[in-house]
Computed example of a mutant assay.
Amino acid sequence: MSYHYTESGLDNVWLEDGYIIENHPSYGELISFKNVRGLHEAIGRWLVAQPRTLNGAEFRFLRVELDLSQKSLGAILGVTEQAVAKWEKGRDKAVANKSAERLLRLAYINYLDGNTEFSAIINRITKLDAEIAEHELRLRKEQDGWHKIAA
């Protein structure tokens, strides 16, 4: 008997074994899973290897496995938190930003493989983007002349 593993947030994962279903007199059916970390790693590696664009649910799965908020991932990808949320809401739709989707795949696989250099590069890019934003000069024309405004 297979178990439909919707606890992952994905609709297409079925377990052939590695789980136990017990009936408790007070709580009803209880399900426990063996090695959830390994299970999620297997799901993540399968997703990363797919030759198609990830959908919103798959994108969210990888983000959650990286323990990143939508805001944090947006900062890494150079997009807004709202953009990440929009992609994830399209559960069954392909993520519109293919570059962001590919970078998430790279980040995930490098995280699993313990590649600290990749993480350092991502952190440096994020820091550089913040520094560039601080060096922008934004001006507004008002009646009494040009004035600097906040970026």
Rank of each mutant, 00 (worst) to 15 (best):
residue 53 T to N: 03
residue 121 I to Q: 13
residue 52 R to W: 03
residue 151 A to N: 14
residue 32 S to A: 07
residue 143 Q to K: 15
residue 28 G to M: 14
residue 106 L to E: 15
residue 15 L to T: 03
residue 72 S to A: 12
residue 18 G to A: 05
residue 142 E to P: 00
residue 129 D to H: 15
residue 7 E to D: 09
residue 35 N to Q: 15
residue 26 S to N: 06
residue 115 N to Q: 12
residue 2 S to T: 14
residue 132 I to H: 03
residue 134 E to C: 10
residue 58 E to T: 08
residue 96 A to C: 01
residue 42 A to T: 10
residue 34 K to S: 12
residue 79 V to H: 01
residue 97 N to D: 14
residue 50 Q to L: 15
residue 151 A to P: 01
residue 28 G to K: 12
residue 58 E to H: 09
residue 147 H to I: 03
residue 125 I to R: 10
residue 24 H to P: 01
residue 12 N to C: 00
residue 40 H to E: 15
residue 140 R to F: 01
residue 115 N to L: 11
residue 95 V to N: 01
residue 105 R to N: 07
residue 2 S to A: 08
residue 119 S to N: 05
residue 117 E to L: 14
residue 36 V to K: 13
residue 15 L to R: 05
residue 151 A to V: 11
residue 22 E to A: 11
residue 131 E to P: 12
residue 61 F to I: 14
residue 9 G to L: 02
residue 127 K to P: 02
residue 29 E to T: 13
residue 17 D to I: 13
residue 74 G to K: 04
residue 105 R to D: 03
residue 93 K to S: 13
residue 123 N to D: 14
residue 148 K to C: 01
residue 150 A to P: 03
residue 65 E to R: 10
residue 56 G to Y: 02
residue 72 S to E: 08
residue 44 G to S: 06
residue 42 A to S: 13
residue 104 L to Q: 08
residue 56 G to M: 01
residue 13 V to W: 00
residue 64 V to T: 15
residue 55 N to S: 02
residue 123 N to K: 14
residue 137 L to D: 02
residue 1 M to N: 05
residue 110 N to A: 06
residue 14 W to T: 06
residue 7 E to H: 07
residue 70 Q to H: 00
residue 102 R to P: 00
